[in-house]
Design a protein around this nucleic acid. Structure first.
Length: 491
RNA sequence: CGGGAGGUAGUUCAGCCCGGUAGAAUACGUGGUUUGGGACCACGGGGUCGCAGGUUCGAAUCCUGUCCUCCCGACCA
């Protein structure tokens, strides 16, 4: 009973922390704001990474790797960019340590100061565009469709496991195009990939939209995003795709000769998702007993637990269980037979529920007699008796069903938490009492957005794509507006 | 970075106010009985009390500094 989780209803933040730590996704580290991603959490990330990587490659992207360090001067080339990141940059100033006079401690060698400090990348636009300058001369070099899987560092004041850490893992795509239209199309293509990934793999319904200028990426002309809703009614940005215009091309002087033999600045996009998605996965689906992982991403999809009395039964069950395990594996299902004798069945049940394994199979002497096996769903906790001969197809069906119903459950919750508001009173009341997205009119100014944030802590999460045109009046100022936008308190 | 709480065995925590040989539960090891929802009995191993200074005959305990974590706030593609 050492693994109690704080109930969601009592303290949502504590519930989240307990869950991440006790399910074995991650641990705190000795370094402020940096976490250790444990094997189970990393396996989950690998599955996410593999699925995304395939989607990128299927649409013509390739992977490369750029340096961790960025010369300080690069960052200041693009004014808005440096403005956005300067306050959270880790800086390398020296390249050598030495032993101090006492001979006991190492200290920074003052003689080893770098002539130009290096920034630990908070994002790689600058180092990459400095490189692209050498790679692009003609329209024949375009488009350049490159992604990298990397770690980045942002010195955040207040960190939270997976949701905001000083160092995190992510992918960042950086593309170069000959025309504005093509770059815009790319940014939208990636947004579609992100949305598909969130919905089809993470079972997480998302809203596609664009950010207001206030919330836009530092250096972008347009930021597209997908926004998701967590169980506590707060929104979480799950991915962004930026149309960078010619900002970085101009900052790094990247020009190409077009078909008319004229020099032109290159058009750019950048886009990324991070290990933050793991936090989203936890907060969207888990309950008071642990994680609930969508089958398509779960490191372990099926666990088989033996129930036996004595050696003799154990041997019989072992034989059957191993043959079931092998047929599941042959069918491409990530399965494991937990025959460890250090824990009893009840303990194992609780443990795998904590870890969010979608399906548990329990096999005992009684089941062998009847040629049945007990299948238990993590998401609904329903139990079924399945003929052993049908087990592979049953498991496949259930995995698909679980994937589907997790999405439907999250979507029902999300759809039920998009609430229109037409008066300021309603607006505040919905935010305070119900949470979720509030759909309201906005006069389009940064001042109003800022004032609303000041009053309610809610921000404009996005201006939904494919809007329904509707005349209305700004929720705060009453000025005319043509479209509703989505407000929410966010992570 | 401001306010609050905390750091003692792998884990959760007591001990600190009032200084005097470091405790519990759980986990772990061995043996046995068990095994259909977090088993039980017996024996056993494990902590320079976050770190660094200081006060003292003596510091987990008092003082100073520092690092890390949590909560609230400010900040935050």
């Amino acid at each position: 009973m050492s693994k109690e989780i704080t109930p969601r209803s009592q303290d949502y933040s504590q519930w989240y922390n307990d869950l991440v730590l006790k399910s074995g996704l991650a641990d705190y580290s000795a370094v402020r704001g940096c976490m250790v991603i444990k094997p189970y959490g990393y396996a989950l990330w690998e599955n996410m990474r593999d699925a995304l990587d395939k989607m990128f490659k299927d649409t013509g992207h390739v992977n490369a790797y750029f340096p961790l360090f960025i010369p300080k001067s690069f960052l200041s080339r693009e004014a808005a960019h440096v403005e956005g990141f300067a306050k959270e940059c880790a800086v390398v100033t020296h390249y050598r340590l030495k032993t101090d006079e006492s001979g006991k401690e190492v200290v920074v060698d003052p003689d080893a100061r770098l002539e130009e400090e290096l920034i630990v990348r908070p994002t790689s636009e600058t180092i990459i565009w400095n490189t692209y300058k050498d790679w692009i001369q003609s329209h024949r070099d375009l488009p350049l469709l490159i992604n990298q899987w990397a770690n980045v560092v942002r010195w955040e004041m207040r960190t939270r496991l997976f949701l905001r850490t000083a160092e995190f893992l992510w992918q960042e795509g950086h593309t170069a195009h000959a025309t504005r239209e093509e770059a815009l199309k790319e940014a939208e293509l990636i947004l579609d990939i992100y949305a598909r990934f969130a919905e089809e793999f993470m079972a997480l319904p998302v809203i596609k939209g664009i950010k207001t200028p206030n919330e836009r990426f530092a250096g972008a002309e347009e930021t597209y995003c997908i926004e998701a809703l967590m169980q506590d009614g707060k929104a979480l940005q799950a991915g962004t795709s930026h149309f960078l215009g010619q900002n970085f091309a101009k900052a790094f002087d990247v020009k190409f000769l077009n078909r008319e033999n004229k020099l032109e600045y290159v058009w750019a996009t950048s886009w990324g998702v991070s290990t933050r998605l793991i936090g989203a996965l936890v907060m969207a689906h888990a309950d008071d007993d642990g994680l609930i992982l969508p089958p398509r991403l779960a490191p372990l999809q099926v666990v088989i637990v033996p129930i036996y009395k004595g050696e003799e039964q154990k041997n019989m069950i072992d034989e059957k269980a191993v043959s079931i395990l092998n047929s599941l594996k042959q069918a491409g299902i990530r399965a494991r037979y937990d025959d460890s004798d250090t824990a009893r069945p009840g303990w194992k049940f609780a443990e795998y529920e904590m870890k969010g394994v979608p399906i548990r199979l329990a096999l005992g002497a009684r089941d062998l007699q009847n040629q049945l096996i007990e299948l238990s769903r993590r998401d609904t906790r329903e139990k079924f008796q399945i003929p052993i001969d049908n087990i592979v197809s049953a498991v496949n069906d259930f995995l698909a069903q679980i994937q589907h119903s997790l999405f439907e459950r999250a979507k029902t919750f999300r759809d039920g938490h998009i609430t229109p508001a037409d008066t300021w009173d309603d607006f505040e009341r919905i935010l305070n009492e119900k949470g979720g997205f509030v759909s309201a009119h906005w006069d389009g100014t940064a001042e109003t957005e800022e004032a609303i944030k000041e009053k309610t802590k809610a921000t404009i999460r996005c201006i939904p794509l494919n809007p329904v045109a509707e005349k209305g009046n700004c929720i705060l100022t009453g000025k005319p507006s043509n479209q509703r936008v989505l407000f929410a308190r966010a992570y």
